[in-house]
Design a protein around this nucleic acid. Structure first.
Lengths: 65, 65
DNA sequence: CCTTTTTGTCATATATATTTGACAATTTTA
DNA sequence: TAAAATTGTCAAATATATATGACAAAAAGG
């Protein structure tokens, strides 16, 4: 469960607005927020920059036991 | 410039050993170390786990100005 | 030195991330 | 309560991450 939606909403951005800001399709944002797939590092960085945060905050998860 | 090579060598692992540990091809490790492409988030996490570190430490970069 | 291991790299194949367009469902706002 | 905006989702097309096999160059170890 990543934190993209939380940070996006704190900035009052729609999925569309965020997508345009970082030049990806809206569906890409939607799928990422639902953990439906596996974004690239470049996209993770773009999201962190746009949302004023960092990789760990948005995407970190503890290793499987 | 990511920190994968630095952390891998600190653990005394070859590219092959690291690749086997996280079930990817050795070439994938090599290319990532040379910033030749854009790994997936799942792979970034697997690398962080295997190298005992985190996403920011391995992959963070400041936003373009 | 010679041998073994490690690394750099190429070319081809496959899996999957991402795009595009579209429409229904839900939520927000007037 | 109706209109507008936002979100969920589908199917098809395209771009690209990743795998596989292979070989030469370089580095490490005996």
């Amino acid at each position: 469960m990543n934190q993209v939606r939380v940070y996006r909403q704190q900035l009052g951005l729609s999925q569309t607005a965020l997508a345009q800001q970082i030049n990806v399709a809206r569906q890409t944002i939607n799928l990422i927020e639902h953990d439906k797939y596996n974004p690239s590092l470049a996209l993770c960085l773009a999201l962190a920059w746009a949302l004023g945060t960092d990789l760990n905050t948005l995407f970190w998860q503890a290793p499987p036991a």
